[in-house]
Amino acid sequence: MEHILTIKNLTKKFGALTAVNNLSFTIKKGDVYGILGPNGSGKSTTLGIVLNVVNKSSGDFKWFDGNTSTHDALKKVGALIERPNFYPYMTAEQNLKLVCKIKGVAFSKINEKLEIVGLLNRKHSKFTNYSLGMKQRLAIASALLNDPEILILDEPTNGLDPQGIHQIREIIKKISAQGTTILLASHLLDEVEKVCSHVVVLRKGLKLYSGRVDAMISSHGFFEVKCNNQTKLLQLLENHKSFEKIKVEDNLITAFLNEPMKSENFNQFMFNNGIILTHLVQRKESLEEQFLQLTDH
């Protein structure tokens, strides 16, 4: 599959502070790739380096086949890495016409991109009258004007209300479904889990995980159980090869699986061994639980 961006051993130091520490990952065509981490983990610095606005200290990155200069490659990139910055008393359409002139894009693209972000019926409204969510959506439309091969978004839902967050996420899914590769920096686990196919998890510039989101949460899950004979239940679980870890909180026992098991088979096994369960729930570990384990909470 075609590579869009390859980052290899990338490091950025600001004096004694190492903001990005020997980071490597590859984004392939069609990926929705999330950079996940708390504030200060190196997400924005990484984006700044590949967009040529921050100088790297060491390591390397290459766009596309590696034979394209960064300057030429960035003509095929759309990016939103700061708060939307348009002329407040000009309409959305007027603002986008200016962007078209700068990018050398035909004005005919404007309606197409406003349609994608749900602002076509507000194209004659002044930017100053837009809500924060609408401003963010207009900025995405602006970044799409040159039909980029990859769209880069830095914390695109920051500061938005729940409706605004939902709208931005649906737009990201729509853009991805049309074949555009997306690189998204976020500190929100929920965001990455809902819209990303791949993720790299950072903490203080260090990579803790990179790969598919579904592989990160591909544990076999766990059972939450209660019964009237907790001692015997614990003994059965501890001697069963399918369980790797048992946790007890008050009367609730959590048994983590190391291989697949159906709840009906588990229930039958307990019944055959004289245990009548009063509570049985099977769950999958969420991305949040995986993330907390990775980052030591």
Rank of each mutant, 00 (worst) to 15 (best):
D31A: 05
E149V: 12
A185N: 10
F266M: 01
C196F: 07
K75L: 14
K13Y: 05
P260T: 02
L208C: 08
T157C: 05
F271E: 07
L294N: 05
E289N: 08
T157E: 01
L252P: 08
H220F: 15
Y130L: 15
E155P: 08
R83G: 13
K247D: 15
Q290R: 14
Q178L: 14
Q230E: 13
K126S: 15
E193K: 07
T278L: 03
I49V: 15
F222H: 01
S210R: 02
S218L: 06
I175F: 08
L294S: 03
T11N: 05
Y33N: 01
K123Q: 10
H297G: 13
N273G: 02
G221H: 01
L257D: 00
E224H: 02
S263N: 01
S142G: 10
T70G: 10
I116R: 03
L206F: 08
N95I: 04
S197E: 07
L10P: 00
H297L: 11
E115A: 06
V54R: 03
L292F: 11
N267T: 08
L114K: 00
L234A: 02
L98E: 09
R169Q: 12
A106D: 15
K56I: 06
S131D: 09
D72C: 04
N95H: 01
Q230T: 12
I171Y: 00
H198G: 06
V53Q: 13
R203D: 11
K62F: 14
T46L: 12
L96Y: 06
F271P: 08
L138M: 12
N67H: 14
N146W: 06
A16D: 13
S197M: 05
N85Y: 11
Q235Y: 15
V50Q: 02
K204C: 05
N239V: 02
R212S: 12
K75W: 07
V200P: 00
M90I: 02
G30K: 00
V201C: 09
E244P: 04
N39T: 08
D31T: 10
G211A: 11
N21Q: 09
E224D: 05
K204W: 11
W63V: 06
A177G: 08
I4D: 03
E224S: 04
A185V: 04
L287F: 11
I49G: 09
L151S: 04
F271N: 10
I116K: 06
K245C: 12
N95G: 06
A215W: 09
V77S: 02
V225D: 01
H166M: 12
A19Q: 01
G133C: 08
I150L: 09
Y89W: 02
L292C: 03
V213I: 03
L277Q: 03
G59V: 11
E238A: 11
G48N: 10
F107H: 11
E238T: 09
A19G: 08
A73D: 09
T68P: 00
L233T: 01
K284G: 08
L23W: 00
R83V: 13
S197C: 09
V53F: 14
S69E: 08
N67G: 15
A139S: 13
N52D: 15
I81N: 06
I102L: 15
L119A: 01
M216Q: 03
I140W: 00
